[in-house]
């Protein structure tokens, strides 16, 4: 299974900023290996972030998002200690969910 995501969330004046660093190859499916064979695409397609039980961001990724994707976004509300849950799914059907508390 993939490595855990790094999630940082901080609340400042009523707005919570969430930063997520995901460990994933994000292979485009356009690259060729040394033998000239096409390397099959392997990338995250969907990512959802939740604050407590409310969805605060849902996103769709294509293969042109960088390897080990980074994502930052902001939402109104959130208090210290609240839970942020981020989950992703890739085109092979692998998924991962990690959580962090707002600091």
């Amino acid at each position: 299974m993939a490595n855990p995501m790094k999630i940082r969330a901080a609340n400042k004046e009523g707005v919570t900023e969430v930063k997520v660093l995901i460990s994933h190859e994000m292979e485009t499916g356009q690259r060729k290996d040394s033998a000239g064979a096409l390397v099959p695409g392997w990338f995250i397609t969907e990512l959802t972030a939740k604050h407590n039980d409310k969805v605060v961001l849902s996103s769709e990724f294509g293969p042109s998002v960088s390897k080990n994707p980074y994502l930052a976004f902001k939402f109104k509300g959130g208090a210290k200690g609240d839970k942020i849950v981020v989950s992703w799914k890739d085109n092979k059907g692998e998924t991962r969910t990690d959580e962090a508390a707002i600091g």
Binding site: V56, L57, L71, A72, F73, K74, K76, G77
Partner: peptide, 14 residues
């Protein structure tokens, strides 16, 4: 972006 999420997103692309 659901209501309450700000129109401000950063990421990295190829």
């Amino acid at each position: 972006l659901p209501e309450g999420t700000e129109a401000s997103v950063q990421t990295r692309v190829k």
